[in-house]
């Protein structure tokens, strides 16, 4: 079971209904939230991935169980560029973080983490960070990573304000990571 913010049941519906329903459902989500689309239309996998790409949302992945498809899409703001200015000063490259001594803290949503993360990385979604900071060791170096470096920039600032001293924002982030991936889905 992968965590999502909103679930849409599109089982039994034929093309183009899963797409039409998804378009309507995603309007009710906040930016950054994850929509789970449950469908039986076999074409919905390719269609939803293409739809997300066209309209500017992030297609995370699909799992299948007993002939039912579970699709995960993260709502993005097509107008806001991913190139938002990053302000946290200490940064480190993907390679340096993977080979470093510190803890890799992945602040993407649980669904994004489930579909592939750096082996050994710890998952705390950005929205849960404030409440779960006590799970982290202040004495340890922490490399904060997300998809493109925007969320991890904010998370690194939050951690620094909370008294963590050796924090790095990992750039460019998971979108350009090509190393080994650990997955929680088949």
């Amino acid at each position: 079971m992968i965590k999502s913010d909103v679930q849409l049941d599109a089982k039994g519906l034929a093309c183009p209904m899963p797409i039409v329903k998804t378009k309507k459902a995603i309007q009710g989500l906040d930016e950054g939230q994850v929509l789970e689309v449950i469908a039986t239309d076999k074409g919905s996998k390719a269609d939803l991935a293409a739809w997300a790409k066209t309209v500017g949302h992030q297609y995370i992945g699909t799992t299948e169980e007993g002939g039912v498809l579970y699709h995960y899409i993260r709502k993005c703001n097509p107008e806001a560029s991913e190139q938002v200015e990053k302000t946290f000063e200490k940064t480190i490259s993907n390679e340096e973080a993977v080979n470093g001594e510190g803890l890799i803290l992945d602040v993407r949503e649980a669904a994004e983490f489930a579909f592939g993360h750096i082996p050994g990385a710890k998952s705390i979604p950005m929205g849960e960070l404030a409440a779960r900071m006590d799970e982290l060791d202040k004495a340890r170096t922490i490399y904060v990573i997300c998809r493109t470096g925007t969320r991890s920039d904010l998370a690194a600032q939050q951690l620094a304000e909370a008294g963590f001293t050796t924090i790095y924002n990992v750039l460019p982030g998971m979108s350009e990571y090509e190393g080994e991936l650990e997955k929680e889905v088949k």
Partner: peptide, 11 residues
């Protein structure tokens, strides 16, 4: 109508 609705749903 399938192509039309799919296109409209894709903004």
């Amino acid at each position: 109508f399938n192509i039309a609705t799919a296109a409209a749903a894709s903004e």
